[in-house]
């Protein structure tokens, strides 16, 4: 499909949705550049689905506006031609087979003949539904999710909007869907906008992330910048083997210090995590400020006469950022 302009894939201006008793989305200003994998993160009930319904013209904004490739959204928006959409709980006609539903979906985009047949075949392969003879009515939740993904791609969309595509799936199903999203992102002309409450999903595939909390946008930037900005410095301290009890005491003692936000005994090292560290008791310390901690932690341990086997900086995770941004009272 043609690329009409350099307009962002999604842009909202003061997008607001309020119901009688609550404001679901409050003056959302969001820009999703074309060609990115964009994670729309937030706890359940933050307003993610409401935002997506407004983008799809399924719900009317109370105020503000949403544009998709510069085209205003709405029930009859021309933008729908360029979007593939997977709702949080996709519902199909139970009497159809997967291939029949995809042919129906493609037909609604004006596809037909050999081209449609070929597309349907490709997408059945892509989602692992080739050869499934069961009618959709007998599909498991995971199979429906995969069919939902396939129908969202039938028109080779420029923008794919996925609402919580992984939330109902088991770990294998999740990985498959995330791999599919990643594969879509390889194609620079496709923008993927997906919502989730699962932090690991975002870390796995997104370059950009927006975080929504109680209808408010609390962050919108590159994942890397976000971590750099909001993540607290984290240190891992490993005591020599056999100091498990002392590690717990040490963590408790550290927790009481003013420059420590949180310290906890993180169990025995050795399996998996830090290669070559050998066995030992690990303490995970979230500091308020990096330099102070770097000076104080080794000193603190040495003063207590404990054998410091290893001292290192840990990669801040999105979870740290998320907790800081979302858990404000």
């Amino acid at each position: 499909m043609e690329r009409t302009s350099d307009a962002p894939a999604v842009q909202t201006r003061g997008l607001t949705k309020s119901y009688k008793t609550a404001v679901a989305v409050d003056s959302l200003n969001l820009t999703v550049p074309a060609g990115s994998i964009f994670g729309f993160l937030g706890p359940n009930g933050a307003g993610k689905t409401t935002t997506i319904r407004m983008l799809m013209g399924l719900a009317r904004p109370t105020a503000g506006q949403a544009l998709i490739f510069g085209i205003p959204t709405g029930p009859d928006s021309a933008a729908k031609r360029r979007i593939g959409f997977l709702p949080d709980v996709p519902a199909f006609y139970g009497w159809m087979k997967a291939s029949e539903y995809l042919e129906f979906a493609g037909g609604l985009f004006g596809l037909d003949g050999p081209l449609l047949k070929q597309r349907v075949g490709e997408l059945l392969d892509f989602t692992g539904l080739t050869g499934v003879k069961t009618r959709v009515g007998g599909f498991s939740r995971g199979m429906k999710q995969r069919l939902g993904l396939a129908q969202a791609l039938i028109n080779r969309p420029d923008l794919v909007i996925l609402d919580e595509p992984t939330s109902a799936l088991d770990p294998i199903g999740r990985r498959e869907v995330l791999d599919a999203i990643k594969a879509l992102g390889q194609n620079t002309s496709t923008t993927v906008f997906f919502s989730t409450h699962i932090l690991a999903d975002v870390e796995r595939v997104c370059r950009r992330v927006a975080i929504l909390d109680r209808g408010h946008l609390v962050a919108d930037e590159l994942l890397h910048d976000l971590k750099a900005r909001y993540a607290r410095p984290i240190f891992l301290v490993t005591l020599a083997n056999g100091y498990g009890r002392q590690a717990a005491e040490l963590a408790a003692a550290l927790s009481g210090l003013e420059w420590v936000e949180k310290a906890e005994a993180a169990g025995e090292a050795g399996e998996g995590a830090e290669a070559g560290s050998g066995a030992g008791s690990v303490i995970r310390i979230v500091a308020r400020e990096a330099e102070t901690a770097q000076r104080a932690i080794p000193k603190f341990i040495v003063e207590r006469g404990l054998p410091l086997a290893r001292f290192e900086t840990a990669e801040p995770t999105l979870e740290d950022v998320f907790m800081r941004l979302v858990n404000k009272p």
């Binding site: 399924l58 729908k80 709702p87 519902a91 199909f92 006609y93 979906a105």
Partner: peptide, 15 residues
């Protein structure tokens, strides 16, 4: 009610 309409009207189909 069942949600099948959502997938139809999110395609270039008018209600």
């Amino acid at each position: 009610n069942r949600g099948t309409a959502v997938l139809v009207v999110s395609k270039p189909v008018s209600r």
